[in-house]
Design a protein around this nucleic acid. Structure first.
Length: 301
DNA sequence: GTCCAGGTCGCGC
DNA sequence: GCGCGACATGGA
């Protein structure tokens, strides 16, 4: 059974640039068809139904906006299609207004002008839980290892797409929590991170920890950061990454990559103190993280 | 075989 | 508060 949904975007919007903004598009259960410029993903809905999604950009389908092709074993209820639209919209941050960031980019000119053509919406997951797990899987490991860990986790604990046992949704906290810690660690090969992920899943599944409540515009970034840092496996770098995924760009992760880049570009190779690094992007105000991100990437691409 | 990865934890000072 | 070793795993 096939259904197509359409999501309206506010131009400028660069679909491929958004999908491939950082590595998330190739972490299971996402994958990216480069030739067709399509993001594929298996998603488990609140009703328990597992569906397969094919997401295309504006102008890459018969729709004016983002087209979401849904493959489902049975006809979808209205609330299910609404859930899909909400989740995909969340992944592509269709609710974020970047016009002030673009204005600042235009003011500076040069390579910053590239960003204003619809970049800046760094892809995220439908749930904070998925993003926290994925972020933990990026620490102290190379990118190939991250991909492998997340693929293994999804293969072991994700619900299969009916009729296609190979493709699975991202595991629910409940599925992970119900596994025995030892068996979990042995099957997912996440190394010393496995206990962190398992404990996190248990807390979320039991209701002791409400990660989704981190989407709270009323709370200051510093408070959200504190809550993130209290999660085992989340340190300074991971917290800053998660704040970015939550739409908070006013915290900069001063990690090895950041330090190397800034030292080279702004300090002539002489390593500055961390406070000096923060100061480089200080005048970007609430857009620090995005400024740093595109300072690194827009110069290359 | 050895090193180390977009780090983080828990300890000792 | 800050410095330091340990930490699972697999690719280079």
């Amino acid at each position: 059974m096939r259904t197509t949904l359409e999501l309206t975007t506010r131009p400028p919007f660069d679909f491929a640039g958004t999908a491939y903004s950082h590595g998330w598009v190739v972490l299971a259960p996402n994958d990216w068809d480069e030739q067709r410029q399509v993001l594929r993903r298996v998603e488990r809905l609140g009703t328990g139904k597992v569906v397969s999604l094919r997401v295309r950009g504006p102008g890459n389908a018969r729709t004016a906006g983002i087209a979401v092709e849904v493959e489902s074993p049975k006809r979808l209820a209205k609330k299910e299609t609404e859930e899909i639209a909400r989740k995909v919209g969340h992944m592509f941050r269709l609710d974020e207004d970047l016009s002030r960031f673009y204005r600042e980019c235009r003011r500076r000119g040069g390579h910053w002008n590239r960003v204003t053509k619809g970049l800046g919406r760094l892809l995220r997951s439908p749930s904070v839980f998925e993003d926290v797990v994925k972020t933990i899987a990026t620490t102290n490991v190379q990118w190939g290892g991250t991909k492998k860990m997340i693929a293994g986790l999804t293969a072991a604990y994700g619900e299969p797409m009916p009729g296609d046992g190979l493709r699975r949704a991202f595991p629910t906290p409940e599925a992970i929590a119900s596994a025995k810690p030892k068996g979990f660690a042995a099957s997912v090969r996440m190394g010393y991170r496995a206990p962190y992920v398992h404990a996190l899943a248990r807390q979320v599944a039991s209701g002791a920890l409400d990660l989704e409540s981190l989407h709270d515009p009323e709370r200051p970034t510093s408070e959200l950061k504190k809550r993130l840092l209290s999660i085992k496996g989340i340190g300074n770098y991971a917290a800053a990454t998660l704040l970015m995924l939550l739409g908070r760009y006013d915290d900069l992760p001063v990690d090895t990559v950041c330090r190397d880049f800034v030292t080279k570009k702004y300090f002539g190779g002489k390593p500055p103190a961390d406070a000096e690094i923060q100061r480089v992007y200080e005048d970007w105000g609430h857009w620090k993280y995005l400024a740093y991100w595109f300072d690194v990437w827009a110069g290359i691409k």
